[in-house]
Simulated scan of single mutants.
Amino acid sequence: MTPTHAGHATRYPAEFLALTDTDEKTLSVLNGSCVFAEPFVREDSLMAWEKSRRFIVEALHGDGTIVDYGCANGYLLRCLQEWSGSRLEPFGVDNHPGRLNQARAMFPSLAHHFLDPAELTESRIFDYVYWAVGDNVDFERQENQNWLALVRGHTAPGGRFIMGFYDTPEANQRKLTVLRARGTAFDAVLDNPAGSGEMIAWVDC
């Protein structure tokens, strides 16, 4: 039988499937994502996760370096590597030491790619910068505009800055409206075709 992930008939390497081959491991990698089947069923939860995040690969149009700003345990980066079919060199930034250590454990040969925000110097740039925006981030506030400029500034010339929005569709649209009014000109906006409300928007730099 062909190994699958979340019901897809795609061939995935055994080491990727091993990340979620028990209930305990699945709960661990999905911890903090707010994506679970209720009641918890491993395959259903993985399906829900994939439906909520796989569409991000539509913004990844080729090989390159990718940094997940707010990478948590690194599982999204690992999934994007498999889902995209591109050769993505992963980097991650997170301000939580425990989550950073989990991400380093997920990519043991690249542990030095996972940094505290204070360690991310201005000179570090990437082909893709992905930032899942927190529901409580208000872009009317100047400090959050400054934060936006800081994160976007790590995008290489010719690269792509991608923002993920995971609040309600109405709240996501409000954020997009504020961002546009404050000067962010998005090149594309994509609603999750799975219909679960998530949205990404990106700027080609």
Rank of each mutant, 00 (worst) to 15 (best):
R160F: 03
D68G: 04
S84A: 04
G74L: 06
R180S: 08
A105F: 00
L110E: 04
G164N: 04
A194Q: 13
E119T: 11
Q145G: 02
P97L: 01
D127W: 08
G183W: 00
A105G: 05
K175S: 02
E143N: 14
R160C: 08
G74C: 04
I66F: 01
V151H: 04
H154Y: 07
Y75R: 08
E122Q: 15
P193N: 09
P108Y: 12
C205Y: 14
A103P: 03
F16E: 01
W131H: 11
T26S: 11
H5C: 12
M1W: 14
C79H: 05
S86M: 05
S45F: 12
A201W: 03
A118I: 00
Q173L: 11
P193A: 11
L150H: 08
G159P: 02
L176N: 05
S84L: 01
F186P: 00
R160K: 11
H113D: 03
G183E: 01
I125Y: 14
A149F: 00
L76R: 02
D68Y: 03
E24M: 14
L60T: 07
V203R: 02
K175F: 01
L190N: 03
K51V: 12
M47N: 12
M47Q: 15
F40H: 08
V133R: 05
A6E: 07
D63A: 13
